[in-house]
Design a protein around this nucleic acid. Structure first.
Lengths: 246, 246
DNA sequence: CCTGCGCCTTGACCCAGATCAAAGGGGCGC
DNA sequence: GCGCCCCTTTGATCTGGGTCAAGGCGCAGG
């Protein structure tokens, strides 16, 4: 997965330039953020944190894909968030984690110790402002996802997921870039199933169905070609405007 | 629906005492909040705002019940939030609404003009802090709801809804109060169906099922008696701790 | 008192997606 | 090259909840 950083704010020294936390920081503030940050990398499949764990760091995703999941003892699992580069993990003001966080591909995080980070929040109001904005965006995304889970058909769910991936891969800051027809899926069929509230068999069948109907073409099972984004959009069941997704 | 205000912070002159926005405000700050607030009442069934509307006020619910809904053109509707007293509507920093907001019972809102409210946010950092906290709580609740929508059975969904209502009605600030066995439902079967991603027929059948199994007793169709909360909890499919729900 | 209207319940049937089961690949160690 | 393992696809069958249709029931208005 590649991200255009051309239009990203130029926070020094961080690969994603703290886009998550300091879009409006001045140099002095950046220095202070840099003082308390450190990087951490997790292998694909590794558990980053588990429900109930103490949360003594917050972090933003620099590269790779991670998932937030909620599970019931009997094995049923629902993904409740997909973390792609620039997404933020952890919440100031709460000490324990509500979900399982798992690295799907190799993941690098830019971490901040929670305590000093919270201290900085008080001094740098627009970081807090930015966090509020991000939390509200995530809330909107979660609510769109509720519509998907509660009311969409399996085919609409798959199409919506592909649109989401396409948007996130190709328009990191809102502008179109690169090849809009080739999409590399960062997650397995099982992860998709957990995201969509489906079984892997149904996910697989819907992929086959979309392929047979010419909406997508498959190249291996991690690469999707989308000949026409409009056609795919029609399959999502969303109104024309689409709206923000995760 | 009644709320215990005994332990609520003592912000003057507002029925819910701005619990949502100023748990930590001092007198001066309260005066400034009071200067820009006003009340508005909506009749049951009335539309408070629609998707796409300009959002020039933010508000907290003083009394009554309202819903946030997302709809697809073909009529499928998913409720994405239930607004009970002390809940907050609207988001600083975004001008248009993403959902339809409807009054379910008669609703009174304590409103603030968005612009002056945003101005106050900058000057009163702990209001911003409180908003962030609330947004993150709502996000947790939305994610729990995603587990319900994606992975729970119809019976578990109904049981979860009843537990949610029971918690919200009886423990507004965490402490138990009043009669834990009688629950008055503020919403119709249709509203429940839209909340749970079910049809009204299924909702009705599940109520009948729970009644026949002695988990609940019905008195008319808006009043539920819960002989044993533990039994109901077991039907929700949640792990023991339960966790926060909306 | 009857009638109409909203809401809710119940019944009969159907179907999308789950479940159970059996093959494909494709990559990697040996 | 060979076998193993994991992921994915496909097939056959089952079922929970949707759909369609027909009553209850309470209540407001005539």
């Amino acid at each position: 997965m590649t991200l255009s950083l051309a239009a990203a704010p130029t926070c020094s020294s961080c690969p994603i330039r703290h886009r998550a936390v300091c879009a409006r920081c001045d140099d002095d503030e950046l220095v202070r953020l840099n003082e308390i940050k450190f990087y951490k990398t997790y292998a694909a499949g590794q558990t980053i944190a588990m429900r109930g764990d103490a949360l003594d760091v917050v972090a933003s995703v620099v590269s790779g894909t991670a998932t937030l999941e909620r599970a019931i003892e009997d094995g049923r699992t629902q993904m409740v968030g997909l973390l792609l580069p620039s997404d933020f993990i952890g919440r100031p003001g709460r000490a324990t984690l509500q979900y399982d966080v798992t690295a799907v591909s190799e993941v690098t995080l830019c971490c901040f110790q929670r305590k000093p980070f919270e201290a900085l929040l008080i001094e740098i109001p627009h970081v807090q402002e930015r966090l509020l904005e991000m939390a509200l965006d995530e809330l909107d995304a979660a609510r769109d996802w509720m519509l998907l889970l509660g009311r969409k058909t399996a085919r609409e769910k798959i199409a919506s997921l592909l649109m989401l991936m396409a948007k996130r891969t190709m328009h990191p800051d809102g502008q179109v870039m690169g090849d809009t027809s080739r999409l590399e899926l960062p997650i397995s069929r099982e992860t998709m199933a957990n995201f969509l509230g489906l079984t892997i068999e149904t996910v697989s069948r819907q992929f086959t169905g979309l392929r047979k109907d010419g909406v997508i073409a498959l190249d291996g099972n991690r690469v999707v070609h989308i000949p026409d984004l409009e056609t795919l959009l029609m399959e999502t069941g969303d109104d024309s405007d689409g709206g923000p997704l995760i």
